[in-house]
Nucleic acid binder design. Structure first.
Lengths: 132, 132
DNA sequence: CCTACACTTTCCAGTCACTGGAAGGTCAAG
DNA sequence: CTTGACCTTCCAGTGACTGGAAAGTGTAGG
């Protein structure tokens, strides 16, 4: 399939897909006419990249995540270590996202824009501690 | 408090904090010596920025999120609309993050690097649909 | 007082991850 | 065989930092 179709199916712009190829993150095959050719599996990977990039993982981290699929021959221990580190990171991100949602929900419910001098949220905002 | 302390407490590098001031995202007061001076509330905002940036929200989106706190005088409807749109986005991100975690967990459990020809995950990987 | 050193300031250049646009090739429809 | 949507490469620009220079500040020790 051509890059346009892969773009639609993955949610990544063609420009970005080409860029990922440039930096060696995601290489596609080529058809006889020189066009890039994407398989269903390629689209899965692009989707995966689209997701993880959108969730704040760097390109290097995404490279590691992708390597979990691509380097099946590698040491089981190494692959598992990377995967488990990433799982921890994801759990941390999940907790942060839940915290952000709670903050915002609280805001919507209690600070309804009726010109109070101070919003009760400001005090407890993100007060979970930073360096902990 | 000085920028260094605010940096430690917020988790954002001083460079980034200054950059946020440059682009008008987060302005701090100044002490007599010309040093930036951060209040506890300022640190809360920085923490908030640190979180939301790390979760894939753009600076412009963060500006909107912050405006929910800063522009208490604004139309209640407008503030609520922004907040609710952001809440939806956060819920979407949460779902994606859960999906990513499940994919990775599945990988760790079922593809333990023992040189199988094909990983059973590849088929179901990110198969939730893209354009839906 | 001076020195040392960590911290701060501004400014300017560089990096990462795209993103837009030009100039040109490919392909299916009419 | 033209039109137009798609593809190619290449190069420049943007958003969000990030590093480093040059200079001011603050404090502890001599």
């Amino acid at each position: 399939m051509n890059i346009g179709t892969a773009s639609e199916k993955s949610g990544l712009p063609p420009k970005t897909i080409r860029y990922y190829e440039d930096i060696g993150l995601m290489k596609a095959g080529r058809a006889g006419n020189g066009y890039r050719d994407y398989s269903t599996e390629d689209v899965h990977r692009l989707r995966f990249l689209q997701r993880s990039r959108g969730l704040g993982f760097s390109v290097e981290e995404c490279r590691q995540l992708l390597s979990l699929y691509d380097d099946k021959q590698r040491e089981s221990a190494e692959v598992k270590a990377i995967a488990e580190a990433k799982l921890k990171e994801i759990d941390r991100k999940l907790a942060e996202l839940v915290g952000l949602r709670d903050t915002l929900r609280h805001l919507v419910r209690h600070c309804h824009g009726d010109e109070r001098p101070e919003c009760p949220i400001m005090d407890g905002l993100a007060g979970e501690q930073a360096t902990g």
